[in-house]
């Protein structure tokens, strides 16, 4: 049995009245044979829920992707800062030969370029200056926290509180230099990010054209 569909004007049940498709609005319409009032036949309830679910999945996937990028790139940057610190200050020649300087340069460059591309493509909705300053501040904070944890785990704070604090401040101050260098290097990634954005726009435009054709939008009734 057809689902009841009552005319809101004259209360006639339009359940057995076939719907006509209005191409202008893309809506299934039923014209009441008694009062000529048009009403829209309800679309499938589950299809809307399904679309809503798809949208929510898209939203949360994007959030997850962005969060993973933040974790990965911030982690990689902090690791690079520590690597640079080790190469410059701590390592002996033997250790340096094991951990090739070239490898460190490659790691730093790749991380910086990926960061630049991601900041450009992933945050195109925020003014660029805000994004870059915000990310730099975030990196400084993460590096500071990482240094604090590192020193808490390595040094005997009770015995050498003064010297540990000085070391900590020194390390954080010195960390600013590699972060600055990496942020300057990250600018190389801007064209790459713009290219990703361009690809995305092309894809979105094509999708919109396809959807427009599918929904027959813009046609006259």
């Amino acid at each position: 049995m057809a689902i009841s569909h009552i005319c809101i004007n004259c209360a006639k049940d339009l359940a057995r009245q076939p719907a006509i498709f209005d191409p202008h609005y893309s809506l299934p319409l039923v014209i009441c044979p008694d009062c000529n009032k048009a009403s829209v036949r309800r679309p499938n309830y589950y299809s809307i829920k399904y679309k809503s679910l798809l949208r929510i999945i898209t939203v949360f996937s994007t959030l997850l992707f962005q969060t993973l990028c933040i974790i990965a790139l911030a982690g990689a940057t902090v690791a690079c800062v520590f690597l640079i610190g080790n190469v410059v200050f701590l390592m002996t020649d033997a250790e340096l030969s094991r951990l090739s300087v070239t490898n460190v340069i490659i790691a730093v460059s790749l991380t910086s370029i990926a960061t630049g591309a991601w900041l450009t493509a992933g945050f195109s909705h925020i003014p660029k200056l805000k994004v870059w300053i915000g990310w730099s501040v975030f990196l400084v904070m993460v590096t500071a926290i990482a240094s604090i944890i590192y020193f808490l785990s390595k040094s005997n704070i009770d015995a050498n509180f003064g010297s540990a604090t000085i070391l900590l401040v020194l390390a954080n101050t010195l960390a600013l230099i590699p972060i600055l260098v990496m942020m300057i290097l990250a600018m190389v990634g801007i064209p790459l990010g713009n290219f990703f954005l361009y690809l995305y726009q092309i894809l979105a435009r094509e999708l919109w054209q396809w959807r427009k054709r599918r929904l027959s939008l813009g046609r006259t009734r």
Binding site: I3, S26, A38, S39, V40, R42, W208, R211, R221
Partner: peptide, 26 residues
């Protein structure tokens, strides 16, 4: 104006959504 229906337009896909609903019987 044509059918005297209450409608809203989706700002993303541009399609018209009818605002007249009936309870789902399922």
């Amino acid at each position: 104006s044509h059918y005297d229906l209450l409608i809203a337009r989706c700002p993303e896909c541009g399609s018209v959504t009818s605002l007249q609903d009936y309870p789902s019987l399922g």
